[in-house]
Design a protein around this nucleic acid. Structure first.
Lengths: 201, 201, 201, 201
DNA sequence: CATGAATGAGCATTCATTCAT
DNA sequence: CATGAATGAATGCTCATTCAT
């Protein structure tokens, strides 16, 4: 444990609630999860949750923010050491799929809850999700600017296409709980399709 | 009363309930829709719904079955007159996107509720959705058998990839309510990516 | 079948509904029996019941009237051929217990529903039940007038005491479904207690 | 707040709910009593009832357990100071009838709801009621063993007979709300019948 | 008379949220 | 800060009753 864990016990409790919520939401979904279940999963009292979050909705939003930020940071860190648009795209695909192995609860949570929540929590724009989309878009843009990718496709559309494809495969991986080696082969196949499809000719 | 009123009065009421449910679910989502809202939307009494469906869950499942079957039939009909794998893929993409224009409620319903349903209505396997996936898979398989598509990709994976991509774009179209012409251009871009990515070399 | 069955088919249907209600009430009790179950048991449509009875409550009351009248008539007929207060009391006890054998549904219905209904169907005084009580009272009175029974007990109280005792034993018989021979021995024991207890000394 | 408030705050609320339920059930019967009425009678919120009882059925069963135990304890306490089988039987009868005076709601509840309950709450065997029956049986058995009572009657049957008689008279007392002095005379008459009927000769 | 589809008032139960301790 | 007992609004579903055919 780091020093922070002792100096900020409140932060620790907040984190435990988020962890509990993730586990519970992954297992039963947002609407079928009771606040008391999250509390029990986190090892705190029901009321304690309301010291850290305004409502169950707020907890969901905060969980998105927190976990998507983690995903984006991780992707940025990985990509920062990789050169070449094709290789960067490959790494992005691979990392997305690896969620199914490394963080199955998070994978389930994102694939299943993302759409519902961004639609029904009206005022919430889900900025972190948009950041993730932007990241995929910029992969395409970079490729176009470097002359590696065709110019007759809009990066904004392609970002969506790629995210949708990855997310759907992640869903498949999450539910079938496929072994690790599959991820490598799946990454190869999906990457090839997009790279060959995108390649400037 | 006309003859039609006598030939299927019950079916008519069942259909009105399904229509009402689709409209309500599209607007507020399954969990935020009250049974009484569906009833009022359908112009029937609350109790009437339970003459045609066992529960709110059963209504959701029935709606999936009914609408997915309609989508699949429509796709099959369209494709039956089209030759050439590339053109068939193009038509499939186009039809998927056109849902956003022609049946925006259905588009919203499918993009937002589909994933939840297969996860939380445990025993329900969503066979119609799997049929749709199979249809996309067979497009890839046909292309491989005819030597038009590369052989180093699994149709099963590609079906998912394509569905995910289409579904995500449909989501975008549905929420931004883009005008008709966008659909044509989007179809072209997405189709090109997949066809070029899939093409045997 | 008698002539009446053909000339009054409506009466036949009324009877079938009462039979169905008795069977259903015996099995599940008044409050747990749906009108539609009675209808199905009687082989009529739900709505038909309301052509013969004003409400579910009215059906219950009518069933009491009808069956209690039958019980009373039967008791009167039997007793009309019996002389001697002690023997008359014995026959009354025996007949009461025989309900468990001959008409188990009726026995269950009377033992379980009688109290509830006479209490909660406010304006209904359950006159037939009071008739039955009067019959038991008059057995005691007759015994007192003939000098066979002690005079220091009120017939009204004794009627209740005997009815309560019989009804409780009937309940036991009904639930345990004891064989026929028990009834004879039980009749002997119960009769002896009351006759010896009542005998003038 | 007093010490008592701290030593059993939960028990207190549970007791208030049971009291409210007894009052409500006595007034309108189990099936005609709404949970919200019980809550309001008890001065708690509707939901609070479900913190102490699993369901409305469970509340009914718990009420039986609780009140029958109280009745049995009371009877045992009273009888512990009484010698002689005849006098003991007299006290048992008297105590049963006194319920009508001292606890009219409880009397109404027991006489009206007891039979329903054991029949419709399927798995529930109503053990406390059987305890009460056993107590009456043992009065008869003791009398037989001491040579005071005749041996040609089964205690098990007599227990039922006595309970049925007492219960029916209690019902009469409860509904007619007779004054106190009646109870004494009624006790005398009923006791005499059973004692003279049971006496060994 | 008979039907049974339709009605809609009614109710047990849940669960997010609060607040006294 | 933390607790968890208490709250009470909210809702899916039932079923006695009606009425057009």
């Amino acid at each position: 444990m780091s020093q922070a864990d002792k100096s900020r016990p409140a932060t620790d409790k907040r984190e435990r609630i988020l962890d509990g919520a993730l586990k519970a939401f992954a297992r039963k979904g947002f609407y079928n999860t009771k606040v008391s279940e999250i509390a029990s999963e986190a090892g705190v009292a029901d009321g304690t949750i309301y010291l850290y979050f305004k409502s169950k909705d707020d907890l969901l939003i905060s969980l998105f923010e927190d976990r998507m930020e983690w995903v984006i940071d991780r992707l940025n860190t990985e990509l920062s050491t990789v050169a070449g648009v094709e290789e960067r795209l490959r790494r992005a695909v691979e990392l997305h799929f690896q969620l199914a192995i490394e963080e199955p609860d998070l994978a389930e949570f994102i694939t299943v809850e993302l759409r519902q929540s961004s639609k029904f929590m009206k005022e919430y724009k889900n900025p972190k999700f948009l950041d993730y989309l932007k990241l995929l878009e910029s992969l395409v843009e970079d490729g176009q600017e470097q002359g590696a990718f065709r110019l007759d496709v809009e990066p904004r559309l392609l970002g969506r296409v790629i995210f949708g494809a990855l997310d759907e495969v992640l869903l498949l991986l999450t539910f079938s709980r496929s072994p690790n080696r599959d991820v490598v082969e799946m990454t190869r196949q999906v990457t090839n399709i997009f790279i060959d499809g995108l390649r400037a000719r």
